[in-house]
């Protein structure tokens, strides 16, 4: 294999992996953008969504035990979306509405608690076994690329990239062109001001957590298809953090570009620097890369500029 092809493979694989990270980071961005809350539970939401989807599809789940049949994929996905909307509503009713006027750090702490509750609930409801998730997404290397160009790229990751592109387009339209999207941005800018012009905070929070839940479902499907649905899936949130630091907490394009930079950066580091220093550097290299960006652009590449007046 020629060196340049290998380098190309590393870069392309990094880009594709970066998209997978970006899918998780997007959920964080949506909630932070609309409510200023850093949702620590985003990774667990992806896990919970994947568990719920699996339950609708499998014969060893609650749904089959109660109704005696499983759902086809095209019905199971909308059913899971309904579950995530109900979850958003419950979170708003039981957690968020009591913390409206609290400091952001309190809201952050609440989401840490939420992460543990959701993880425990997922364990109780669905069990801790590895659940193979197959909803028909192509997996393995692309035979055409491999046979024609000796180029290895995962079909699942190509599919994830396409899905992410569609998702970003929909979110852009949602935020820029719809009345609800504008209301979300108004709430993000100033809760009190938004309330004073008649924006319903309760409703907005349910909507944004629902949208974030749907994004979590997409991330859960992609990661669950890759490794099976299991509780380690919640740890992918840690992979999204450097992406957010780099891309900015409030920017949807930032999440994507940040994901791509982190994905490529960590793969190049692991392949070319790793052997010199003993390997296994991609995790901390991603954070180091993010910290370097932080030094020069604290708001991230696409984040809103931080202006402090004294």
């Amino acid at each position: 294999m020629a060196f340049d092809i290998f380098l190309l493979e590393v870069i392309l694989s990094g880009l594709m992996t970066g998209v997978m990270y970006a899918l998780v980071a997007l959920g964080f961005v949506l909630i932070f953008k609309a409510s200023g809350i850093f949702n620590f539970a985003q990774g667990v939401m992806a896990l919970f969504a994947a568990l719920a989807l699996y339950d609708f599809l499998a014969e060893d789940g609650w749904f089959f035990a109660v109704f005696g049949f499983t759902l086809p994929v095209w019905l199971a996905i909308p059913a899971t979306i309904v579950v995530m909307i109900v979850l958003a509503w419950v979170i708003e009713r039981t957690v968020l509405r009591f913390l409206v006027k609290q400091n952001e750090i309190i809201l952050f702490m609440a989401t840490i608690g939420l992460a543990f509750v959701l993880e425990g609930l997922g364990d109780l409801l669905f069990g801790s076994d590895v659940k193979p998730l197959d909803i028909g997404i192509p997996q393995g290397a692309s035979d055409w690329l491999l046979d024609s160009f000796n180029l290895y790229i995962e079909q699942l990751e190509i599919f994830a990239a396409g899905t992410a592109a569609v998702l970003v387009a929909i979110l852009a339209i949602f935020f820029q062109r719809t009345r609800i999207g504008r209301a979300l941005r108004a709430v993000a800018d100033d809760h009190q001001a938004a309330l004073s012009v008649g924006v319903s905070l309760d409703k907005i929070w349910v909507i944004v957590w629902s949208v974030s839940g749907i994004v979590a479902l997409v991330a859960g499907i992609m990661w669950g298809s890759k490794s099976g649905v299991q509780f380690s899936l919640s740890l992918i949130a840690l992979k999204a953090l450097p992406v957010l630091i780099l891309g900015g907490f409030t920017s949807v394009p930032g999440a994507i570009v940040g994901g791509l930079i982190i994905g490529v950066g960590e793969k190049l580091a692991e392949v070319y620097i790793g052997p010199i220093v003993g390997g296994a550097i991609e995790n901390w290299f991603a954070y180091m890369l993010a910290l370097v960006f932080l030094l020069f652009r604290p708001q991230g590449l696409f984040g809103e500029r931080i202006i402090e007046r004294v």
Binding site: S13, Y152, E270
Partner: peptide, 12 residues
């Protein structure tokens, strides 16, 4: 959960 870089090296 993520091992792409490892397996790219094995492939090479």
């Amino acid at each position: 959960q993520e091992q792409k870089a490892t397996w790219l090296q094995i492939r090479k």
